[in-house]
Write a protein that binds this DNA or RNA. Sequence first.
DNA 1: TCACTCTATAGACACCGTGTCGAGTAGATC
DNA 2: GATCTACTCGACACGGTGTCTATAGAGTGA
Lengths: 207, 207
Amino acid sequence: MTQRGRRTARISGDDRQDAILSAAERLLTARSLDDISIEEFAHGAGISRSNFYFYFRSKDEMLLALLDRVIAEVNHRVASLPRDFGRDPAEAWRQSIGVFVEVFSEHRAVSTAAITARVRSPEVLALWTEAMQTWVDYSTEIITAERARGAAPDGIASADLAVTLNLMNERVLSATFGSEKLAVNQDAVLDVLATIWVRTIYGVVPT
Amino acid sequence: MTQRGRRTARISGDDRQDAILSAAERLLTARSLDDISIEEFAHGAGISRSNFYFYFRSKDEMLLALLDRVIAEVNHRVASLPRDFGRDPAEAWRQSIGVFVEVFSEHRAVSTAAITARVRSPEVLALWTEAMQTWVDYSTEIITAERARGAAPDGIASADLAVTLNLMNERVLSATFGSEKLAVNQDAVLDVLATIWVRTIYGVVPT
DNA sequence: TCACTCTATAGACACCGTGTCGAGTAGATC
DNA sequence: GATCTACTCGACACGGTGTCTATAGAGTGA
């Protein structure tokens, strides 16, 4: 987690920065990043609009700070997952995907804001892509290992599979927790995603 | 395709409107909708900025006109597809998905612009969602039929499957043809998507 | 106690893109 | 030739962003 914002690391004033971030995450649950002006974020934290720029260079940089924390949490939870795919592969995949479902659900405001903002902001795109790359690499590695031990059939390159399935998760979670009209029910989404992953990776089509 | 723009349907002036749309689609291949000001679209069609408003109420409404045409093309091509899933299901799905791959590829500028704009514009969202709904219904129907004739196993509700797989296609095609860093190669994307659809719908996991 | 320094704050300003309004032009039709 | 109407543009107002400058106030050392 790099140092976002322009302040040097000091004791006082951190609470103000945190206040801005808290206010921001709260405001983002109701409306989108574009709909909320910097003035609103500032007033939400009890400061003037121009003073906002003392803490963050722009709205996007504020979002980066929020996103940093969410990504760190996912990575922390993924890292502490048991990597035992030998005993019950379906359950192991389900647990991995479950981490994303949970964190996305808890921080849906930040996640959806990031997905929206990445098309406009190269920095947000870079941070998001870097995180996705980590998860894609993780998935690729496991798929390859599963094939090597004969548990999964060959076919599509594991890297392509990993990219596609991760993009699917991103889009579906975004739709579901963003309350889009075309989405899967929150209670069912983990089942659906896990099933598709498992059938895609291990499934064979009877002829 | 409803009447976009504010002009009443008349003979002359349609070419101007078309000129704007052509210029727009050309400009959109290089930069995003947000990056291009109305002034640029107008000058691209040889008119002044304020005159743009004579033809379209806003940038988004211009996009709607572009999107109308793309969606109509997809639907037309999907409708003229043979619906024979009995003989070779994998090939039939591949052809259906192929329509989306081709049209998305040909009109990638409009498609990606629409995907970006829908988060901001309720009208774009409505049009896009309506189109997606059509394709989801189409997919759901076929999956249900395939299960009914015993060709596909039960499990996840076919509607959930259809939504998820269609969202996957949307995201992956957007990534691939938008030249995102994390994407599938253009030559491989149809193979990958078709494989996932088929394995998900027909595949069984050996125990 | 008195400067001095550095963080923190806000008001004022300039800029850019959007959308509206009203005045004006050109070509067809009577 | 009058007029009607589609069409065109310049000028304006608005809202959001980002910068610059002045200054308040807390901590620090002589």
